[in-house]
Design a protein around this nucleic acid. Structure first.
Lengths: 319, 319
DNA sequence: TTGAAAGCGGTACCAA
DNA sequence: TTGGTACCGCTTTCAA
């Protein structure tokens, strides 16, 4: 049986209130009584029950985090960074994964009273967030979840178009004539790709789209033949995993990178730095995103539902 | 303000007990009253406060998980798998990272009443687990944490020696004469390496040790010159990241793998499958470990402190 | 069938 | 300086 304030009060012949005062370091208890209480608490090995405290105070140090079922290395890194930052502020992440609407609801239900804020690191665009989350009293923060139409929660958007434009522009400047976009339909990346062509001489450079089922290593590997027969001299992959899969194919078929074909990835996965050859990639602004999240959690404290948009811009990095 | 049982009771002119009965699907409430309560609960959007329920029932669906500050891709994969398995059982992981003893204590204190079981996916061997955890009423499970001397908690050990022995034996059979161990001092891996030499003709094959500061990509890359000058024809790296770093060096210096030098890694990181050439690696028995954890959590339910050892054996996989 | 009431373990108001 | 006590919201016993 756990040691409670009541037990300590009984053992020391005082009241719950006095014990509570002493153990919380508040004033208003005589020196003798104080010493006795401290002594007994130590002997019994008192550890406060945070669940009870949280219930009473209607607050907690726990933050819900919803992650996609499958995460890229960069996402995992972002998550680890967020976890560290939360801990630095005395908070802890309670994890759940993005599932079907009904399961999602069930999950949020299981969290009521435990977490007051839930951060979505991913969202299924087919689900209407507003109607799903309606009725819950938690606060929600959507981080880089694409086009969420939502009037009640905080939405952090990452504008990757600048980074993509920069990457494509660089390819163009280095004299590439035909550039392929390879991946599946991710609106923000496609529009970044397109707007890059508008900026850079659109008439001089050709663009083609090569679509894949998934965005993993194998998909990049499998898309390689099509890429090669399409006679492009540069490819922009929407994930680093795709790009790495392609690099493996290139290695096997003695295709020279970047002499024969230039490659740019997206995500800045760590393994990319050690691929052969090193992958050039558009980075995620991890620190900026997480700083923003912590700022929201800490300063606004989210005592009331509020609505806001935050946009973070990213940059192109080459390794 | 949240909707509570009391509010519904007031709004429907009944008692908390009846509302509770209805919403928990228990019998013993008249049809009319039942319908009214359901109606009002729906209108008000009732969501039970799990924190209060947990306090009352002295239980919870939350499981603490302590992870190392820096995780390998394989560890992250194991964690994601564990999270999915927990969710399948209706449980959720509360995450924390392995820190200094004082911070660790503080963390566990913040979790009292919230989680009843904490899983350590890593441990600092310099800390005495028994004295640190003494006084807490949580249950602890140590997973693959090396040599933990502990008489009160559940310890899951992964025996990698078999896998390592197998890998080294295979190198020996393929005619390698001098095999290097590269990495820092990880007792179980070193002893696996050593015992492999005892099994396989120790007089015929030479072994050398090349130590690194860390076990990351860069360390493998930096260790490469020493490895090459030591004139070995095979290297066993204690992490895949080390091995991948070496592969990059080999690529740059036109060293042929495995013609010039054979390479085996450890961890079975995914990127290894797409390195050039593909990395041969000793796998982590992810499923087996996590199955065991879930089994412990579910079947034993950890209602009483118990003490046990579980050992899982791994195998060598080559890709 | 119904509901009053006693908890779970802290917190903090208020009166002594 | 003390300590009694109501309360956070839910569960469950027990009596009506």
């Amino acid at each position: 049986m756990a040691v409670t304030l009541k037990k300590i009060a009984e053992a020391s012949g005082t009241s719950v209130r006095s014990v509570n005062r002493v153990l919380k370091g508040q004033s208003g208890v005589g020196a003798e009584k104080r010493a006795a209480i401290v002594q007994i608490a130590k002997e019994l090995g008192y550890v406060p029950n945070i669940a009870a405290r949280n219930l009473r105070l209607r607050q907690s140090n726990f933050v819900g985090i919803i992650v996609p079922l499958k995460q890229s290395e960069a996402q995992q890194r972002r998550l680890a960074d967020l976890q560290a930052r939360l801990e630095a502020e005395g908070m802890f992440p309670l994890m759940g994964s993005l599932r079907e609407p009904e399961q999602l609801k069930q999950m949020l239900r299981e969290w009521t009273g435990i977490v007051s804020t839930v951060i979505f690191c991913a969202w299924d665009s087919r689900i209407d967030s507003e109607s799903l989350l309606n009725g819950f009293s938690q606060h929600y923060i959507f981080v880089d979840c694409g086009n969420i139409s939502n009037q009640r929660d905080i939405i952090i958007t990452v504008d990757r178009q600048a980074g993509i434009r920069q990457g494509v522009a660089q390819l163009a400047q280095s004299g590439r004539q035909r550039i392929a976009y390879c991946g599946y339909n991710m609106p923000d990346r496609i529009s970044g790709f397109n707007s890059a062509f508008e900026e850079v001489s659109p008439d001089k450079i050709g663009k083609i789209f090569i679509t894949t089922e998934q965005i993993d290593f194998a998909d990049g590997y499998n898309a390689a033949p099509e890429i090669m027969t399409s006679r492009v001299d540069a490819v922009f992959f929407i994930t680093d995993r795709l790009a790495l899969g392609f690099l493996k194919y290139a290695y096997e078929h003695k295709i020279r990178i970047p002499e024969d074909i230039a490659v740019i990835g997206f995500d800045d996965d760590q393994p990319g730095h050690y691929s052969c050859p090193a992958l050039s990639s558009v980075a995620h602004p991890i620190s900026e995103i997480n700083e923003k999240i912590i700022e929201i959690l800490v300063t606004k404290n989210l005592t009331t539902k509020e609505f806001s948009y935050e946009t973070i811009y990213n940059q192109r990095e080459s390794s």
